[in-house]
């Protein structure tokens, strides 16, 4: 477990900013309790400093996880957000997409969001923008990247893809072995 290096922080923060934009400062400078980012076995954990200090006493091979896992660095140094980061993305997300009940299950099985399943979308979403996906009762289900801007979606046919799937809560069941 160690703090992120300059380069690592840059890569990770860029990825996070893609979803929550300027709200990133709320994660870095928390009002309630100081939190920090820690790297352990290639994964980035976001954890309160008090927990981190106590977690130090656990030896490296025995430590499995602490706080919330945001994502991991792959071997080429890119940062991939995991579904576990949804807890922090959802409250701060700038752009949101709501999907209809009949689109919930297809999305939770790892499919992209089609126009037919689109319930609502934030008004001025640009193209290739990170969005958090909710169902109609405002439960966050995952996140993805828009394929078209809000304006362009109007003219698309119902089977075309609106949001490219990146992560969904179904991964807790599907990828339990590889996620952690």
């Amino acid at each position: 477990m160690r703090p992120l290096t300059e380069d690592e922080s840059k890569v990770a923060f860029e990825k996070l900013a893609n979803y929550i934009g300027k709200n990133l400062v709320h994660l870095v400078d928390r009002q309630d309790e100081p939190h920090c980012f820690r790297l352990h076995k290639g994964r980035v954990y976001y954890v309160s400093e008090a927990s981190m200090r106590l977690g130090i006493s656990v030896a490296r091979p025995n430590l499995v996880s602490l706080g919330t896992c945001l994502g991991k660095f792959n071997k080429s140094g890119k940062f991939k957000l995991h579904i576990t980061s949804l807890d922090y993305l959802a409250p701060y997300a700038k752009y949101k997409v709501w999907i209809k009940p009949n689109g919930e299950m297809p999305f939770l099985y790892g499919n992209h969001v089609l126009k037919a399943h689109l319930g609502r979308i934030t008004e001025d979403t640009p193209e290739h923008q990170g969005v958090v996906i909710y169902n109609m009762s405002d439960v966050p289900l995952g996140f993805g990247v828009t394929a078209r801007s809000t304006v362009d979606t109007r003219k698309l046919d119902p089977t075309s893809i609106i949001v490219f799937h990146q992560a969904d809560v179904g991964e807790y069941l599907r990828d339990e072995d590889t996620l952690f």
Binding site: N62, V64, S65, G67, E176, L179
Partner: peptide, 22 residues
């Protein structure tokens, strides 16, 4: 077994948990 433990801890949004395997 700590994998399923970690998955459940994250799924249920518990942020004060340190998972270890001793």
């Amino acid at each position: 077994r700590t994998k399923s433990l970690t998955a459940n801890v994250h799924r249920l949004g518990c942020k004060n948990v340190v998972v270890c395997s001793y």
